[in-house]
Design a protein around this nucleic acid. Structure first.
Lengths: 233, 233
DNA sequence: GTCTATATAGGGATAGAC
DNA sequence: GTCTATCCCTATATAGAC
């Protein structure tokens, strides 16, 4: 490897490693929703899906999904009403389209990143970092999913809750394992894992605040680790 | 005082002390908004305001403010459309009506509860408890304000952000003071106060989860204190 | 002060041209 | 595959009776 002048942060490395590009995700979305989408050419469909999802996230996150009209969406994305309706059969399908990936990707990423770690301390920190870095990378998705969770149709809401629970469980398990191994002192692992999630969530819910205070994702991750290490020591 | 068989928790005592009843708050709201409200008899107005606000919080918190129709609201509150419009001039006034009090009350309560404490440890824990207990007492208000913050008209949004900042500052000040006094080790107090708020917020954002896990507000408060004490030691 | 009935607009959804 | 024009319903808001 050649020497580089620019500082490569751990987050940068993470970004390269997961490499979830908009195009990749929209391509996957297209393939998953071929029955609903009327467009046959993949290249065209993916290009428009990127625009649709970008605009939906932007508008819904700034004024709320319900307050966003499809005319707003068309104006922002450059599509016409007719064009838009080649990709969805109704407005709620936009939620469906967006929702599917965020949480599943989170779960996969968390598991991928803790898998190689056997030491409880390292496992815990790996999970914390994976969650923070991923939500940093896809903060619009995370924010949307959190804010519009109540708008989900019953069936999807159940899925969303289940996946949330799984993420909870990942942290709970790491804590329980660490306690059993004697790496952590015995604590109420249920309460603590809930709190860990609260801290991770704040990173994408209050993104602006942290940006204004010049707090980087690495710094935040380090503080969370520090807080947990001292509590568990 | 006579001895009692039922266990009186600290939270119960808090509730008595702040004694923010729905009626009191709605009476204050009525007086503040006399220009907008067409009803002249205070007793009548307050009774209806209680119903309107109760129903709005209930419906908006379950499906979102925008998704809630005024017909929903009328059905739930028992008022007619005409009746409702004696209290507001448009739907957004409902936000205005509800929003005003929560944060201001929080600030007042926080300051009241930390004022008598001089020891940094006690001050910090008093603020934590005051925030948790108040949000427990008025969780619908807190949840609504958080979720509908983006729907606020620009002028009110500015106020809301300013008050939020003030609450942040209260914690920041306690930490800085404690560090200066040597009661706490030197830490990044900005990051930590942001995290404290994240933990406090989670209590009302994820109320169901904590209820399902049988975690009481006192237990949560104790864990937060423990976490902070160990971090700051 | 409260109700019912009604006006109006705005937004979701579609038909059909190109 | 994409656009424009239009349909139609729903939800806000008001007028006017009681």
């Amino acid at each position: 490897m050649t020497t580089m002048n620019t500082a490569v942060t751990e987050y940068d490395a993470f970004r390269v490693q997961v490499s979830v590009s908009k195009d990749d995700i929209c391509r996957e979305l297209y393939r998953q929703n071929k029955t609903m989408i009327r467009i046959k050419k993949e290249a065209v469909a993916v290009r428009n899906l990127v625009r649709i999802i970008d605009s939906t996230l932007k508008l819904a996150n700034s004024k709320g999904f319900r307050a966003m009209t499809l005319r707003d969406l068309c104006a922002d994305s450059g599509l016409s009403m007719g064009g838009l309706y080649a990709y969805i059969k109704n407005k709620d399908d936009l939620i469906h389209l967006i929702q599917g990936h965020g949480f599943i990707l989170t779960r996969r990423t968390l598991l991928d990143f803790i898998a190689p770690e056997t030491d409880p301390h390292k496992r815990l920190f790996a999970a914390v970092k994976a969650h923070l870095y991923l939500s940093e990378l896809m903060r619009a998705w995370f924010y949307f999913s959190f804010m519009e969770a109540k708008s989900l149709p019953a069936s999807e809401k159940k899925d969303a809750i289940a996946i949330e629970q799984e993420i909870d469980d990942i942290f709970h398990e790491i804590l329980e394992y660490g306690i059993k191994e004697g790496a952590f002192r015995p604590v109420e692992s249920r309460v603590l894992s809930a709190m860990i999630k609260a801290l991770l969530q704040d990173w994408y819910l209050k993104r602006r605040k942290y940006r204004d205070s010049d707090i980087s994702v690495e710094q935040y991750a380090a503080t969370v680790r520090d807080l947990l290490e001292r509590y568990l020591a």
